[in-house]
């Protein structure tokens, strides 16, 4: 049986996400990680604007942030996934993020089955979790190490 060591997992997740070329391209930052939960952030950058009329960041940036954050939450779940891949992600946009502010996301993997992790997430402005920009829910495929292996 493999055992779950949260500290090690967090270290692993940090290393893994830090190595994602596109997360680097967006300047994605770690905010916090806990059991089955992750908070990540993307700073505002003019390159990421989706609506030139308003200067609001493109929804695609929020999609990437939420997707990465949800995947991380699955990795931090004690189900001990080896790898995870997004199967389905739904995003609801509550309102546009204010131009100039970073967008953060908090994701929680609230249930897993043998092969699937279910995640919900919220994207909000900077550090204000009450300034909700978008909510998301997703299903992630879980790959495990060969049975019996550590």
């Amino acid at each position: 049986m493999s055992t779950f060591d949260l500290e090690k997992r967090i270290e692993l997740a940090r290393g893994f996400i830090g190595a994602l070329p596109h997360a680097q391209a967006l300047g994605m930052e770690f905010v916090s990680m806990a059991l089955a939960e992750a908070v990540l952030r993307v700073p505002y950058h003019p390159q990421l604007v989706g609506d030139p009329e308003t200067g609001v960041m493109h929804g695609g940036v929020i999609t990437t942030l939420l997707d990465t954050c949800c995947g991380t939450a699955v990795m931090l779940h004690p189900t001990n996934a080896l790898v995870t891949a997004t199967m389905d992600l739904r995003i609801d946009y509550m309102r546009a993020a204010s131009p100039g502010l970073a967008v953060s996301a908090r994701a929680e993997c609230y249930h897993t089955t043998r092969n699937v992790g279910f995640v919900r997430a919220t994207a909000f402005e900077a550090e204000d979790e009450s300034a909700v920009v978008a909510t998301a829910s997703g299903a992630f495929i879980i790959d495990r190490a060969t049975e019996g292996a550590a």
Partner: peptide
């Protein structure tokens, strides 16, 4: 720079999702 997992390697799911939204 659009790669997510460099081990596979695969395009980042956020990028491909964003591509469809665009």
């Amino acid at each position: 720079k659009n790669i997510g997992n460099p081990l596979l390697p695969a395009l980042h799911g956020g990028v491909t999702g964003a591509f469809l939204e665009i």
